[in-house]
């Protein structure tokens, strides 16, 4: 569509299971850097295109790197990574003396994601429209199995695989205690598969398959070329609108469902006025007056409005019963893990 200067960051290498939906990679490319391969292919196919590859994680790049771009597009595979990138773009925002936003510091973020036949695409104008942190509750909670069920009363094939993964592997250490379970190692998967089958047999549970075992171990999300193509294209259209100002951007969140007919719905995801990432204001969190520091810490980690990882608490001042605590919201530090 005419974009010439594109930088691509991807820490992954190409796997066979990517090829059912990736049109820039071939079987010969398996094992190579996704970023490098994509860049090489696009520069060759599209004359005049000057794409640059970065085979590293998004967290390896600093503010100076991200500041050079006009637009950032992401198709990340985790909420943690999205929150990190979101935090990075927020940290680049500059505010005028009267606390208004300096619009020249805004780098729009176009974000897309898919799961099976469903997907979503959105446009985030940092400091101006809803950001990832504003809409954390749009992400469904992760499904987990209670440990007592896994250990004592399994009834699903998934319970058997979880048992081997969580309890049996650490006990038996089939490849020695220094080898942790690797869902990408076919030998490991096969070992878990067999042990899970044994356990299933013991309890009369059926349908433990290799595919299911791998799915549970790697938390595999189904993916298909068509959904990904549609969501990627929806993102590209928004990037084109941002760059050319030919028409206004989507406002600001589109969901797509291709499983029953074809359905799209675009809505205005609302900003949280007290968003810890994008609002340049403070948020008040109500806690019990007798709450321990641990309870506050736990709430910051577990409450769906915060979901922080290792937040840092700093004491500002003491006033009789009121405690004013500043929670460091530099998310790019708190979410350093992938």
């Amino acid at each position: 569509m005419g974009f010439k200067k594109i930088h691509i960051i991807d820490m992954d290498t190409i796997e066979l299971s990517n090829l059912n939906r990736q049109f820039l990679f071939r079987k010969n490319d398996i094992g190579l850097s996704k970023a490098k391969c994509a860049v090489e292919f696009v520069n060759k196919r599209v004359p005049g295109c000057e794409a640059v590859a970065h085979h590293c994680s998004i967290q390896d790049m600093d503010e100076g790197f991200y500041r050079q771009f006009h637009i950032v597009v992401c198709g990340l595979d985790s909420i943690v990574a999205r929150r990190w990138l979101n935090g990075m773009l927020m940290s680049l925002l500059q505010y005028n003396d009267d606390r208004t936003l300096d619009q020249s510091s805004v780098i729009p973020l176009v974000d897309g994601g898919t799961e099976g036949f469903k997907g979503n695409a959105r446009v985030i104008l940092p400091g101006m429209s809803a950001c990832i942190e504003c809409t954390l509750d749009l992400y469904p909670p992760q499904k987990t199995f209670p440990l007592c069920t896994i250990a004592n009363t399994p009834r699903l094939p998934e319970h058997c695989v979880e048992y081997v993964k969580v309890l049996q592997w650490g006990k038996e250490n089939p490849w020695g205690s220094s080898t942790t379970l690797d869902g990408d190692d076919p030998q490991h998967v096969a070992w878990v598969y067999e042990k899970a089958q044994e356990r299933a047999m013991k309890y009369g549970i059926t349908s433990v398959t290799y595919r299911l075992t791998q799915g549970v171990l790697k938390n595999i999300i189904p993916a298909v070329a068509s959904t990904n193509a549609a969501i990627a294209a929806a993102c590209a259209t928004e990037v084109f609108k941002l760059a050319s100002s030919c028409c206004i951007n989507m406002n600001n969140y589109m969901v797509l469902n291709m499983s029953d007919g074809l359905y799209t719905y675009t809505f205005n995801a609302e900003r949280r006025q007290d968003c810890v990432a994008c609002s340049n204001s403070t948020r008040t969190m109500e806690i019990d007056c007798n709450a321990t520091l641990q309870a506050i810490y736990d709430k910051l980690c577990e409450d769906r409005g915060y979901l922080m990882k290792s937040p840092a608490l700093m004491k500002n001042q003491f006033e009789s019963c009121e405690i004013d605590i500043e929670v460091r919201t530099q998310l790019k530090d708190t979410y350093a893990e992938k």
């Binding site: 066979l16 299971s17 189904p222």
Partner: peptide, 21 residues
């Protein structure tokens, strides 16, 4: 340890993410 179960076929690996659908 050498597991007895055979590895997945090439095709099953390539199409794994869509076979789940």
């Amino acid at each position: 340890p050498s597991p007895k179960s055979p590895e997945q076929s090439e095709k099953n690996k390539q199409y794994d993410r869509q076979l789940r659908l």
